[in-house]
Design a protein around this nucleic acid. Structure first.
Lengths: 340, 340
DNA sequence: TTTAGTTCCGCAAACGTTTGCGATTTCGTT
DNA sequence: AACGAAATCGCAAACGTTTGCGGAACTAAA
């Protein structure tokens, strides 16, 4: 970094006016004569003057930047969210400081400290998996820095959040299978200590019940990745009456199931229909294409950023917390419906 | 943001000492007596004092933050790079400001301005596809802000860069197929206006030539996505003597080819062996698993960040630009070698 | 010619921190 | 008792901006 970047003082000195005049001229303050205003502007562009955002931040106690804490960016969903966040932040003139907690609570705490130190105007966070205490977040609230959760939120912390309705999404997926005439629908579920795991399971059950189908516990198997899916499929196919439909907690699991079934010579969707839950862009690379729930990560990012910026810009930022629930949409493809 | 966050002055006032003393006490300066040092530290933790990084930045003309400009984060490769960057930045005590150019030159320029305004200590950039003028980058160099390119770089701008040896990677992939005894190897190539497209094609040709195989233009087809792969396969299979191996410019293309071939009943790798070029984590979800080139995105991120931080921290930061060329590695799986 | 009103600009303080230098106190030596 | 050194600490300036207030110069009305 060059020791002397061009500053307002430099311009002032060169023109024989005061820094205040330059500052005002630069932002078109009416107190400054057209003549000097032009002088200043011309020299500023000639010198390629760029305002020092740091000094500005210090002066106004507003940094025009927001912080984001994300568990891992190397996931299609999270990177979509990030993309949405940066896009609306950019449009609103905010810069984005991004931290990665790598799913570690300790690092999440450090991230919060760093962002607070940089006096960001607000923070967007999706909490890490192993976070169980939330003092670092209450600290933020006590110090009145606006906080917005996206996707994963901390219980007991009252602030804005945007989440997806996992329950409803699971319901819709299961209902879709039922509408296709399937009677014995299995669910490959996720870890039950996570909210999303529980919600999706409940949505599945709700659909069965409301359509008058029995909930058969032998059709509910914990399987949340490619390998577990293989095992689960083997187990299912040994049943006296195997399933005619599978709703999997994520796409990778669904694809694992699909490939294993196909290897056994089972027709999809003819004998077994399959619906996944979107983690990314996998759906198009299997045959038949995978029906799946689209979680709208990008929209989650834009919604969260908008919530945050709205509160930052509010004259009175202490209105009650808002929650926006994103509706995920079921994308029907060939793995469940032969028409596609 | 609370109007009054606790500051060094507050502590000073409360303790009846000067701000200078508090500042020195906080960082263990020997001029301060143990007694006051303890007093200060105790009160600081009790008040949960956090230093104001903004004020610090202004004072020392160093922000301890670095900027990143990336075309699109929603790609496995780029998000891996980002992940590598943030990890080493975190360890070095730097915060990371991330901007997304969305492949638009105009936005890239705006990003550079914003980062410069925030007086980041250095910038990491992978230029957008439609960037053809680079004044914004020379501007940075003129103002002595350290710049490091990763993956995509601007010709004529002399600064550090880390790139992957696409030529060598393509060579290795093709050579692998030849070593397996394949004689007619097709290449599904990318757009030739991009450097990576050309490099990979050349690497392919080089391998053929050095092994004494002819370069058959009818085996080189422009196909860089799932759909184009299907078409390309049809075309290839109508040839008098169809290929016995395919090297594809990316994984999605390779998988597209694979599925189309399998639908035709062709054995993989028995009749046709396939190697892709890694975009992500697709390799494990096809059967047989896809051989592919791993581009080490995370390592690219760490390397680039290290290069930048090294220059930022250097007493004399004007040593000649360095280029690190990352070796990508060929991961052999079942789609090319039946032993896997 | 005085008065009042405009127009244009500069002074100075402030944001929170660091740091060279000088001032004051304390102590140990003679 | 007196002196020098060591131990502690405060003053003030500085980083680059913004902004309320006041001041000077000028114009126009009486």
């Amino acid at each position: 970094m060059k020791s002397s970047q061009v500053t307002i003082k430099d311009i002032a000195k060169a023109l024989g006016v005061s820094p205040s005049t330059v500052s005002r001229a630069l932002k078109g303050h009416p107190d400054i004569s057209l003549e000097t205003r032009n002088m200043v502007n011309e020299l500023a562009t000639r010198l390629k003057y760029e305002p020092n955002a740091i000094a500005l931040s210090l002066k106004q106690s507003r940094s025009n930047s927001i912080g984001v804490i994300i568990p891992e960016m190397v996931h299609y969903f999270f990177s979509s969210v990030l993309s949405g966040i940066t896009d609306v932040a950019y449009d609103a003139g905010f810069t984005v400081i991004i931290c990665q907690s790598n799913e570690k609570h300790e690092r999440e705490v450090a991230n919060v400290k760093a962002l607070y130190s940089h006096r960001v105007d607000g923070i967007l966070i999706s909490i890490s998996k192993d976070s169980e205490t939330f003092d670092h977040l209450s600290y933020l609230l006590e110090n009145e820095v606006p906080l917005v959760f996206f996707d994963r939120f901390a219980p007991g912390i009252a602030c804005d959040k945007v989440i997806v309705d996992d329950f409803d999404a699971a319901y819709k997926a299961t209902k879709h299978l039922i509408d296709l005439g399937r009677k014995r629908i299995a669910h490959f579920c996720g870890a039950q200590k996570l909210i999303i795991g529980r919600e999706r399971l409940e949505g599945y059950k709700k659909a069965l019940k409301s359509e008058g189908l029995p909930v058969d516990e032998s059709l509910i198997i914990h399987a949340e990745n490619f390998e577990m899916a293989r095992v689960a499929v083997e187990k299912l196919m040994e049943l006296a009456s195997p399933p005619d439909g599978i709703f999997a907690v994520n796409d990778l699991t669904a694809i694992g199931a699909m490939l294993t079934l196909q290897k056994r010579g089972i027709q999809i969707p003819g004998q077994i229909a399959i619906v996944g839950f979107s983690d990314g862009r996998f759906s198009g690379i299997v045959e038949p294409n995978l029906s799946s729930v689209d979680q709208h990560g990008y929209e989650m990012g834009t919604a969260a950023a908008r919530l945050l910026i709205k509160r930052i810009l509010a004259k009175d930022p202490f209105y009650p917390p808002e929650t926006v629930i994103l509706q995920s949409s079921l994308i029907i493809r060939g793995s469940s419906d032969p028409k596609f």
